[in-house]
């Protein structure tokens, strides 16, 4: 479960973003929409534990993100938060499957080969396991990044414009996969987007302005 209290952030010398309190239960999806410049990315990074907010608190289950020490926060993030980006980025030097193993070791988790291959199967990219990520199609890359976000069975999945680069059929496929996988691990899913195609799918929405 994700919740925030009185979150606000101001970059040096600019006006502060004030965010409404959010709540997202396990297996639920929250769509955060808004025009660009309203602080969507800022909110996402605050939720992800990579940007310390000027004020307020982020709670994942009962853990307050920013009350932890930096090192503990890093590990917590790796183990409990999965991130999906607009443009999928990977470690180029290693293969698709090794990118997933990397997500496990970076989060101080034991290598779980079974979990990795189950995910690859479910996302229908197991035939691309040994490929270099830059040799994969965009759809495959986005599915791989979903796999990476899910590999550690996180409690929270954050997706930043996951569909904006995809065509309609790919968009639909990726969203369905994302939704099902989040439900499968009982994670809260927060999607930050301005993609209007998603508004009809997820009723739970928060608009920033």
């Amino acid at each position: 479960m994700l919740s925030t209290k009185n979150l606000s952030h101001s970059y040096k010398g600019t006006q502060a973003f004030n965010f409404p309190d959010l709540l997202c239960q396990p297996s639920e999806t929250l769509l955060v929409i808004g025009q660009s410049g309203v602080g969507k990315s800022t909110l996402l990074h605050i939720l992800a534990g990579i940007l310390i907010p000027t004020k307020g608190e982020v709670l994942i289950n009962d853990t307050s993100l920013y009350k932890q020490k930096t090192n503990a926060l890093d590990t917590f993030r790796g183990q409990n938060i999965g991130m999906i980006f607009q443009k999928p980025h990977f470690v180029q030097a290693v293969s698709a499957v090794e990118n997933l193993f990397l997500a496990q070791t970076m989060a101080n988790k034991a290598k779980d080969t079974k979990r990795v291959h189950t995910l690859l199967d479910q996302l229908n990219i197991s035939n691309r396991a040994t490929a270099k990520t830059y040799q994969m199609s965009q759809g495959e890359q986005q599915r791989l990044s979903i796999a990476r976000a899910l590999v550690n069975n996180p409690k929270l999945i954050l997706a930043d414009e996951p569909t904006s680069a995809l065509d309609d059929s790919n968009c639909n496929e990726v969203i369905q996969l994302l939704k099902h996988q989040a439900e499968a691990v009982n994670a809260a899913l927060v999607i930050v987007t301005h993609d209007s195609r998603l508004k009809d799918i997820f009723p739970n929405q928060l608009e920033l302005n």
Binding site: A48, I50, F76, M106
Partner: peptide, 10 residues
Amino acid sequence: SLLRVMGGKP
């Protein structure tokens, strides 16, 4: 940055 997001410490 990705490695950091995945839990990698500085």
